[in-house]
Amino acid sequence: MLNPLMLVTGVAALFLAAWCGWAARRDQPTKDWHFIGMAVVSLLAVVQLAVGIVQLARGEDPEQGKTIFVAYLLGAFACIPAAGFMSLAERTRWGSVTVAAGGVVLAVLEVRLYDIWGR
């Protein structure tokens, strides 16, 4: 797996979490700019998913198994879009809190992906 891609995705997710956390602190819901940030982080997760699948197709194996690696890749891919949709349903500060939590979860998933890949 591309370690720099994992690092960039994790850091971007933490920046998104901090940004949406700041909006929640100011009692604001998610706004259009937050959704652009979510799109950028989601794009990084899509690239990571594609790279992971290509590496598996080339015969590279994660240390802890392909199944768990693919499951974490799919979870990382779905994390921010799911939080974004939930924030649309909750148009208060709690929508921003939801996206902030999704960013933290994605960062943790990135650390776990690094551990699963093992290189």
Score class of each variant (00 low, 15 high):
94 W>G: 00
27 D>T: 05
62 P>E: 11
92 T>I: 05
16 L>G: 01
106 L>S: 02
106 L>N: 04
79 C>D: 11
12 A>R: 14
73 L>W: 11
44 L>G: 10
74 L>W: 10
50 A>Q: 14
2 L>E: 10
74 L>I: 09
106 L>D: 06
97 V>W: 10
51 V>D: 15
19 W>N: 08
71 A>S: 07
99 V>R: 02
41 V>W: 07
76 A>K: 07
15 F>M: 04
16 L>C: 01
90 E>L: 06
59 G>P: 08
113 L>G: 02
90 E>P: 00
24 A>M: 04
15 F>D: 07
115 D>C: 10
44 L>H: 11
34 H>R: 04
7 L>M: 10
100 A>D: 12
97 V>G: 00
66 K>N: 11
42 S>V: 00
36 I>L: 15
48 Q>S: 12
52 G>N: 04
22 W>K: 09
9 T>H: 13
25 R>M: 14
95 G>Y: 05
32 D>Y: 11
95 G>T: 06
42 S>Y: 00
98 T>W: 03
80 I>D: 02
31 K>F: 06
5 L>V: 03
43 L>C: 12
5 L>F: 04
36 I>V: 14
44 L>P: 09
73 L>N: 12
105 V>N: 12
8 V>E: 14
16 L>F: 00
47 V>N: 14
96 S>C: 06
7 L>T: 03
92 T>Q: 04
17 A>G: 12
1 M>V: 01
110 E>H: 10
110 E>M: 13
59 G>E: 07
80 I>F: 04
27 D>M: 07
86 M>R: 11
46 V>T: 13
118 G>C: 09
47 V>M: 15
91 R>S: 11
104 V>W: 11
68 I>Y: 00
105 V>P: 03
96 S>N: 07
62 P>D: 11
28 Q>G: 04
12 A>D: 13
30 T>N: 11
63 E>K: 09
54 V>D: 14
32 D>H: 08
105 V>E: 15
73 L>F: 08
16 L>P: 01
11 V>Y: 15
48 Q>T: 08
46 V>C: 11
65 G>D: 14
17 A>E: 08
79 C>P: 01
91 R>F: 06
9 T>A: 15
1 M>W: 03
68 I>D: 00
44 L>K: 10
50 A>Y: 13
3 N>H: 04
86 M>P: 00
41 V>M: 05
54 V>K: 14
89 A>D: 00
82 A>K: 07
92 T>C: 09
107 A>L: 06
81 P>G: 02
40 V>E: 15
42 S>H: 02
74 L>R: 14
7 L>N: 08
112 R>L: 12
114 Y>T: 05
11 V>A: 13
